[in-house]
Computed example of a mutant assay.
Amino acid sequence: MKFEYRFLSEFMTEFLVKCPNCDSKGVVATSFKDTWQASFICITCSSHRLWSGNSSSFVTAHSNYDQYDGILSGPAVDCFFRYPLWYQAEYKGNVLYAYNLVHLNWLRLYLEAKLRERVQTLNGWSNQSLQSRIPQWMLIAKNRAAIIKKIKALERK
């Protein structure tokens, strides 16, 4: 199957997260107009919070950025409030995560495909695409069935 390039930022309009107050499912909705804006609301306890950053760019969380008030992109948390993602599971010491159900569905379809051909664009090959950034442990054939099973379980969550 030929997959058109997708980028992680395409899935960053909504994050399903664990509420810091009651551990239930919450939603972080985002928008971009000159800078990023985000709002959080818990479906269960109605807890809410607004975020307005001074940045329109993302910093990758490879270090401790506790004092950084911009957009922090790191594993298994939303980029704005840094709440744990709702869709996450452990697999052999690695964390499988998705921002929302659309992201999770895309991962499942990509991993289920028998042949994953990348399509070259007018600008050539994209090394920043989501396809080129999937961790190797997810792509290993012997792991694939178990990972897809975990994804299906997360989809039912």
Rank of each mutant, 00 (worst) to 15 (best):
M1H: 09
K2S: 13
F3A: 03
Y5E: 10
Y5W: 00
Y5M: 01
L8M: 00
F11G: 05
T13C: 12
F15Q: 04
K18W: 02
C19A: 11
C22L: 08
D23E: 12
D23R: 05
S24F: 09
V27M: 11
V27S: 09
V27I: 10
V27F: 03
T30K: 08
S31V: 04
F32E: 09
D34T: 10
D34V: 15
W36P: 02
A38H: 04
S39Q: 10
S39C: 07
S39W: 09
I41N: 11
C42E: 03
C42I: 10
I43H: 04
T44I: 06
C45T: 13
S46I: 01
S46N: 12
S46G: 05
H48N: 12
H48T: 13
R49I: 07
W51K: 04
S55K: 06
S56P: 01
S57Q: 11
F58I: 12
F58G: 00
F58Q: 01
V59S: 07
T60C: 04
A61L: 06
A61M: 11
S63E: 14
N64W: 11
Y65L: 10
D66S: 15
Q67S: 15
Q67H: 13
D69K: 06
G70L: 04
L72A: 07
L72Q: 04
S73D: 13
S73G: 05
G74N: 05
A76F: 08
D78V: 01
F81N: 01
R82T: 05
Y83Q: 01
P84C: 08
Q88A: 06
A89H: 05
A89D: 07
E90H: 09
Y91Q: 08
Y91F: 15
K92V: 15
N94K: 11
L96I: 07
L96D: 02
Y97R: 00
A98K: 02
A98G: 14
A98I: 09
A98M: 05
V102W: 06
V102N: 14
H103R: 00
L104S: 05
N105D: 12
L107C: 06
L111D: 12
L111T: 14
L111W: 07
A113I: 15
L115E: 15
E117G: 09
E117F: 08
V119Q: 10
V119P: 02
V119D: 14
Q120K: 08
Q120L: 03
T121N: 04
L122P: 00
L122H: 05
W125P: 01
S126W: 02
S132L: 03
R133C: 11
R133Q: 15
I134F: 15
P135N: 06
Q136R: 11
Q136P: 04
M138K: 09
L139M: 14
L139W: 04
L139I: 11
I140E: 13
A141P: 02
K142A: 10
K142S: 12
K142I: 13
N143S: 12
N143I: 09
R144A: 01
R144T: 13
A145L: 11
A146R: 08
A146G: 12
I151E: 04
K152E: 15
K152M: 14
L154T: 07
L154R: 02
E155I: 10
